[in-house]
């Protein structure tokens, strides 16, 4: 059954689905390389960021709800942790701009819908689920303030 997803995430899922084998890895690499730098206002505030303990590599995420009530997801991870960067980049680009309600409705199965399980050990994919859960929790905390 195909998951119902917000348009940007659905597009990412379809892009992965359309590829096979090593091309999927290449697409993940593109996401890893495109993870945006943190905006200046957050670069000096590591304390705002939450460590994603489910990932072996040190990856930190931070959710902001902007004045128009759109979710913005920021993430930072070391260059030598490209898979983790790729996961963070997929979520940051796929979730940013959505309403808090839409983010909370994203299925927890999204990471496993990308067809990466055969290419990346299940262990790694769970890191992405950990990121998604933490993003949702921050959205809840920050939208009820």
């Amino acid at each position: 059954m195909t998951l119902s997803l917000p348009p940007k995430l659905a597009e990412i899922r379809d892009d992965f689905e359309a590829l096979t084998g090593n091309d999927r890895i290449q697409l993940l690499l593109e996401f890893a390389l495109e993870l945006p730098e943190l905006p200046q206002r957050y670069q000096d505030h590591p304390e705002l960021f939450e460590r994603v303990e489910e990932c072996q590599s040190p990856v930190y995420i931070f959710v902001e709800i902007d004045p128009e009530a759109h979710v913005q997801v920021f993430a930072t991870a070391p260059e030598q942790a490209p898979t983790t960067r790729g996961f963070a980049s997929i979520l940051a680009s796929g979730l940013s701009g959505l309403s808090p309600e839409d983010v909370l409705e994203v299925s927890d199965d999204f990471p496993s819908s990308l067809g990466l399980a055969a290419l990346i050990s299940p262990l790694r994919l769970r890191g992405m689920s950990g990121m998604l859960r933490r993003i949702k929790r921050q959205v809840v905390e920050k939208s009820t303030r």
Binding site: I25, Q26, L29, A32, S57, A81, T83, L119, R124
Partner: peptide, 9 residues
């Protein structure tokens, strides 16, 4: 590697 993308970068 453990990280499947390291070789690629």
């Amino acid at each position: 590697d453990e990280d499947v993308l390291l070789y690629e970068i």
